[in-house]
Simulated scan of single mutants.
Amino acid sequence: MNRKPDINLMIAGNTQISLIPGITSAGKTPDLTFLTPALDSEILVEGECKSLDVPPMTPDGLPTPSLIARACLDISGLETLVVDGGMGIKPKCAYLHTDLNPARDGRKEMALPQASLAVSTGRYIGKTLLKNGRSIMISESIPGGTTTAQSVLSLLGLDIKTSSSFRINPTNLKSDVIEEMIQRHGIQNDPLKSISRVGDYTQEIALGIISENEDSRIVLSGGTQMATIYYIASSMKLPVDNLEVWTTKQVMKDSRKTMEYLVDPDHLRFSRTDLTKSRFDGIRRFEDGYVKEGAGMGGSMVLAEMEASTERIIKSIDDVYESFM
């Protein structure tokens, strides 16, 4: 089905896991990862950074993927509604208030003390938006989210490696962190218990939305984080017939086996735009395996590819990137 979704719903939040040095590149320093979701929200909603003079960068100097997402959403005409999935710093733009706090460090305590609020928030959003066959795209901005996703899968007894925003996945560090979580909480046979102990609120909100779906189409725009949500929704017997995952070719190149294990390949789609055609090194380097995904980059690119040529997409990306320089 090629009909585009009616709205992009970006769940933006934080987890204390992102404060672990070396766990994520979604911020120039671990402390700045708590600002990234707010800035991504401002970029997608307002087209500018209001909480900082420059967009968030990786330690290697690559820009946030929300710049690419914004450029591609401009082509498709899809508007973004930001949902507060526990942001530590609130954005200076319109967003849906939820009263959620950042997820905690699952090595030390239960990660999601507000799990029931997150699920009920998702169900409310689902009841509100999924009417009359309306279609939605769900994206995310949560630094450290690939680690919380792998943590949830590990507590369910699965030996699966998620991708990473770093060019070289810090698999040993992730494994050490997750081993501490398993020692504290033990293996779980219940997905919601696993999420509440080591996950993040993005997962709970998304599952709440999916649980309210009857016959609408839901696109999960993201990489191994969204693939994990698809897998858990399927294991919980939630409706997945109209559930798809749209991601980037960079994620597929890095983690194809993981993506195809977690998601029915018939429900999986990925972008094909060649970013090496950009005028800017910061954009071209995405093709080298840096960042890979985030802020709905994959789904936004797939949408743009439905309507525009590669040349037009690259021009839009370059224009947006240049406007932030």
Rank of each mutant, 00 (worst) to 15 (best):
P30M: 10
K4W: 02
G157W: 06
K315H: 12
L192T: 11
S141W: 03
I187R: 14
G106F: 01
D319E: 15
I195N: 02
V245P: 00
S165L: 04
N189M: 10
S255I: 00
S316W: 00
L9S: 07
L112E: 02
D288H: 12
V320S: 01
D266I: 11
E79A: 13
L156T: 00
L52K: 13
A26Y: 14
K237P: 05
S76V: 05
S309F: 10
N242D: 13
A304K: 04
K131C: 10
I89K: 10
V263Q: 00
G145Q: 04
E260H: 08
S278I: 03
P63T: 13
E293W: 06
T258H: 07
D60F: 14
D84S: 12
V291L: 07
M87L: 10
N14E: 09
I20Q: 04
D254I: 04
F280C: 07
D6L: 07
D288T: 14
L153P: 00
N213E: 08
T147E: 05
G289L: 00
G199T: 12
R70P: 07
M57I: 13
E79W: 05
D105L: 14
S141V: 05
S194A: 15
L73F: 06
E287Q: 12
M137W: 00
K108G: 11
E260L: 09
E305G: 01
A115H: 15
D254N: 12
R269D: 06
K4F: 09
F286G: 02
K50S: 11
C49N: 11
G133T: 10
T29G: 06
I182M: 12
T258E: 06
N172F: 13
L268V: 03
E260S: 08
G208S: 11
P55N: 09
A304W: 02
A69W: 03
S163G: 15
T247E: 01
Y230H: 03
V45L: 08
P59E: 09
R70G: 01
M87N: 09
E260Q: 12
P65W: 02
D215T: 12
I89R: 08
S41F: 06
A103V: 10
S278R: 02
M301A: 03
D84Y: 11
S120H: 13
P102I: 07
P91I: 03
A308E: 09
